[in-house]
Nucleic acid binder design. Sequence first.
DNA 1: TAACCATCCTGTTAGC
DNA 2: TGCTAACAGGATGGTT
Length: 289
Amino acid sequence: MPELPEVEVIRAGLEPAVTGATVASVVVYDERSLRRHPGPSEDFIDRLTGRRMLAPERRGKFMWIPLDGGAEVLVLHLGMSGQVLLRDRDTDDLRTRIRLELAHPAHGPLRLNFVDQRIFGSMAIDTLVPTSDQPLQLVPASVAHIARDPLDERFDDATFLARLSRKNTTIKRALLDQTLISGVGNIYADESLWAAEIHYDQPTATLGRTRANALLAEVRTVLTKALAEGGTSFDAQYLNVNGQSGYFAHSLNAYGQQGEPCPRCGRPIVREQFMNRGSHFCPRCQRVR
DNA sequence: TAACCATCCTGTTAGC
DNA sequence: TGCTAACAGGATGGTT
């Protein structure tokens, strides 16, 4: 499941390959991958073909590639199973939904395959607008509601903690709320909560400033470590732009570890249904209090 | 206005 | 062996 570390690994991998490249042609194999595009596939192809790409940017799990000569950008979201694979001109990938043929002045011809098994991801052309948070940043209009991520040096801890304490919800729901803090998904929410010894159903109102601060620190630690290890791969669902797996799955303490002993106290990790997904936690270390 | 939840989607796997 | 149902979860729009 691509979360912040996985998306950042892909963004960084794309940067040297696409910056300065021109889009020679576009093929849309599955229109459903354009769900977030405001027009038909012909419009997507017309607006992208012939454009020169600039350095990719990211906010949370969304990334975008600015297009030369205007305020338009190519927005990418990987959803559950999206992959961006850089290939030579002859390489095909199973379940490629959209293909871009690129021409790079230094690297020559390059193929960008947008592969997506479950089609929760998407590509779209969008325009940049200023954000409401400070300092001002230009982001695609469809991304304007997404908060900064905790690895962004402009992330405002005080604002986050204040908003968190005012919410009438529970902590895992809050961590997954991309308008409050972005980039965290189910895996890293469970890992951060395990590290901070907080139960997923702890009400945000009773968490307290000290524990909230500690949780934010653990979120940063977990994301930073996962990023350093190239992201989390369980199977071929997440690969970097070169088709390689990340290694963070070897470092997981809670997510997917149901039945395994908690690395801290030895009690078996439990998995419960929560928000239409799984929540993994240690019933001894992580209690509502 | 905020919180919650069904929905989208398909390859894999477990169960019969 | 082959069929069916359950499962995985990010974002969103509709409902409460």
